[in-house]
Computed example of a mutant assay.
Amino acid sequence: MAVASPSPQTAVLNPTAITIPKITIIGAGNVGASLARSLLSQNLGNVVLLDIVSGRPQGLALDMAEACPLEGCTHHILGTNDYQDTAGSQVIVITAGLPRKPGMSRDDLLKVNGRIILDVVAKALPHSPDAHFILVTNPLDVMTYLTWQTSGLLPSRVMGQAGVLDSARFRTFIAHELGVPPQDVSTMVLGGHGDLMVPLISHTTVSSIPLTELLSAAKIQELVERTRHGGAEIVNHLKTGGAYYAPAAATATMVAAILQNQSAILPVSAYLDGQYGLQDIYLGVPCHLDRNGAASIVELSLTANEQAALETSAQSVRQTLEKALPLFEA
């Protein structure tokens, strides 16, 4: 008996039925490469790794692609030097820039990295006008503001990765001190991504127990200071370059929240328009992250000391921003 051939409707899959997100990482240094690997391992989407150095993103991407059969990655990675390959990205992460060296502050990077950011945005945005931009380049809060200003995008679509990383560092130090799993520690670090960041002791718990009931004020302050200088501590160990595993993991957390529409509350560098009493500045605050980006800012109740510290941190970021504004006139 002859068997009827399946109809075209059942035999051919609709190629548009499933849309795989596209994530571009600009900068194939240690942070960019670690982030690409993290995104692939979580199967968050197809990844484009772009760098100005010919061959570097291509080689890294090929190496990661060859690991995929062994690690269960289902999506693709492309290494490139051509911005056309980034077209149609849902999320663009900018890690490009000069890394810190021992004795160098984040502000020392301002001039060179500001010019890099302006160039990257001008080249990437026309190919992906609907993308969300996540900044990792330092000085983080100022680079995020520059990206927003030069892109003309809604501020909710431009954000910086800092608070997720800083909070993870604080959680790590607390967990090590108490001998508990870091997952048991809940905290939030606000403010600028620098030495004046503001770990919120009033919102820090360990298995729902306030941190102040487990550690002395002196020990808590010691952990706060270590968190504020957490990046420099790693730089001093490595001698050349800085942290990359934890920054990549923190950025991947933000990408996942956006692409999966999680509405997760995460501390990110977001644009403030009156929230926390601050105006026209990017600063680390808790936000709902979903498909709309930094959809809304969560205003926490702060102690008087925490509010004052946040305002001091904002003042420092604003001073650095005033140095950066002439970049727009170049």
Rank of each mutant, 00 (worst) to 15 (best):
A2G: 10
A17K: 10
G27Q: 05
A28P: 02
A28G: 08
G32F: 11
S34M: 04
A36T: 03
R37F: 02
Q42S: 15
Q42R: 12
N43W: 01
L44I: 05
V48S: 08
L49W: 04
L50C: 10
V53C: 15
S54Q: 08
Q58C: 04
G59C: 12
L60D: 02
D63Q: 09
A65Y: 10
A65Q: 15
E71H: 05
G72T: 01
G72W: 08
C73V: 03
Y83E: 03
D85V: 00
T86W: 01
V91K: 11
R100H: 08
R100A: 06
V112D: 09
N113E: 09
I116H: 03
L118F: 00
T137V: 06
L140N: 14
V142M: 04
L146P: 09
S151N: 02
R157C: 03
G163D: 06
D166F: 04
R169D: 12
L190S: 14
V198T: 15
P199S: 05
P210Y: 14
P210T: 09
S216H: 14
Q221D: 14
R228V: 02
A232C: 04
H237T: 12
T240Q: 13
Y244P: 00
T251H: 02
A257E: 03
P267T: 08
S269D: 13
S269Q: 03
D273R: 13
L278F: 13
D280Q: 09
G284V: 13
H288R: 07
I297N: 09
E299L: 07
E299Y: 13
A304T: 14
Q307A: 13
L310N: 04
S313M: 08
S316Q: 14
S316V: 12
L321A: 14
E322W: 03
P326T: 03
A330Y: 04
